[in-house]
Simulated assay, not measured.
Amino acid sequence: MCRRSSKRNLEINEIIKLYEDGESTTEIATIANVSSRYIRMLLKQHHVEMRPRGSWKRKYTLNEDYFKTWSNNMAYILGFIIADGTIARDVQFVSIAQKEKYILEAIREELGSNQPIVKNKDTGVYMLTINSKVMKNDLIEIHGVKPNKSSTIEFPHVPKEYMSHFIRGYFDGDGYINYKQYTVTFVSGSKSFLEALINVLKEKEFTPQFQQQGANYRVHIRGRKSVKLFSDWIYKDKNEGLYLIRKYHTFKEEKLELHQLADRKHVNTQEAIMRRKLNFLTIYALTHSMEYTCACIEIKPASINRWMNNAKLFKRNFEFIKNDIKKSE
């Protein structure tokens, strides 16, 4: 009996099925987070008929040239892969991970594939892995999606007529909507990618805000009207394309028409935030009361922690005032 590997993230029956569907032991090992030697040992101990080493056969269909031609859905899937996909460095496959299985099933159908979707037993996340040297090379050479892309990915050339679909795909993979705060947020480890995204959003007359949090970067669109405009833009042709139902329904919480909406004036501009920080420090230095100061400028105490984490000058001034208050008490 084969000993269970503590780091293996696929069940034995899933491994056997992948091999019987034509996957190589090297590719299965990469997906399962173990060595190919371990995979071969496991298959033999479960009496699976082994193919000669180096042989490979495809038992599933695939439109390998899919990423050579632009379409609404191609733009969406490209954005989705940039956000939630993996381009393998040493083997010829592209994988996409997602908690909602139905979106992977829709992507699989669009790619013309019947490749099995597997579930990671530890995380509960589903994974669609497409084996294709042609598709991998097209993503790398045509669209610039390289292995280990998280911090180095550049914004690809996307024709304007497909931009909203690309943005929707990326947003479904690495974005979120906070409806109560009327905020749309994009996340990336690549500063360059988000700087290019900001330019795209500005062309659509949004006012995006850039933020760095540790090794990650964020771009925000704020305001009730702006969030509605963003929703209308990315879901314009939703009936003909792919999208995550969960995020779409969050946007649909807005019950008013566009002409009834307005963004709060100047609340979230960089200049306004700087003024609020200065007002906070001034009032706090005079009153010595955190609660009173927050009430005066209409912010929550959590905002102070966020400012402390993201603004070194504010943190230094706040701590100076706080220490001065302690000395005077």
Rank of each mutant, 00 (worst) to 15 (best):
C2F: 13
S6H: 11
N13S: 13
I15M: 15
D21N: 15
G22M: 10
A32D: 04
S36I: 05
I39S: 07
M41I: 07
L43M: 02
E49Q: 15
R51Q: 10
R58E: 08
D65Q: 11
N73R: 13
I77E: 07
I96C: 01
Q98V: 10
I107V: 14
I107N: 01
R108D: 05
N114G: 11
V118N: 02
T123E: 04
T129S: 14
K133T: 08
N148V: 01
T152F: 01
V158L: 03
F166R: 07
R168C: 12
R168T: 09
F171R: 04
D174V: 00
G175S: 04
I177Q: 00
Y182D: 13
G189P: 05
F193G: 00
L194F: 03
L194I: 14
N199C: 03
L201A: 02
E205F: 12
F210C: 03
Q212H: 08
A215D: 14
V219K: 08
R224K: 15
V227F: 02
K228F: 10
D232H: 03
D232I: 02
Y235I: 06
D237P: 01
D237C: 06
I245P: 00
I245Q: 03
R246N: 14
H249M: 11
L256D: 13
A262N: 11
D263E: 13
R264N: 09
H266K: 10
T269R: 03
E271L: 10
I273N: 09
F280Q: 09
C294Q: 01
A295Y: 05
N309K: 15
K312A: 13
K312R: 11
K322L: 05
